[in-house]
């Protein structure tokens, strides 16, 4: 097998290994536990929870 072939083979084997390593890291790091916190991450002060944003097609209120 050519050197490139060996490289590709190891690359292909490394992918699932890296994926499992990431999963392990995520579990140890608590990434899989605090779902509450994870779910709230997109929200911040400027575009807070419980407030719809991007309602720019609201013509009625635009004309009023």
């Amino acid at each position: 097998m050519s050197p490139i072939g060996i490289l590709l083979l190891f690359g292909a084997m490394a992918v699932p290994v890296v994926a499992l390593a990431c999963l392990r890291w995520a579990a140890k790091n608590g990434q899989l536990q605090n779902g509450d916190r994870g779910a709230l991450l997109p929200f911040d002060l400027e575009e807070p929870l419980d407030k719809a944003t991007d309602q720019i097609l609201n013509r009625k209120s635009a004309k009023s």
């Binding site: 779902g35 509450d36 994870g38 779910a39 709230l40 807070p48 929870l49 419980d50 407030k51």
Partner: peptide, 14 residues
């Protein structure tokens, strides 16, 4: 206020 309103609801997000 918005956050406090939402918090008691135990369902969302988890």
């Amino acid at each position: 206020a918005a956050v406090l309103r939402e918090r008691p609801d135990p369902i969302e997000g988890r």
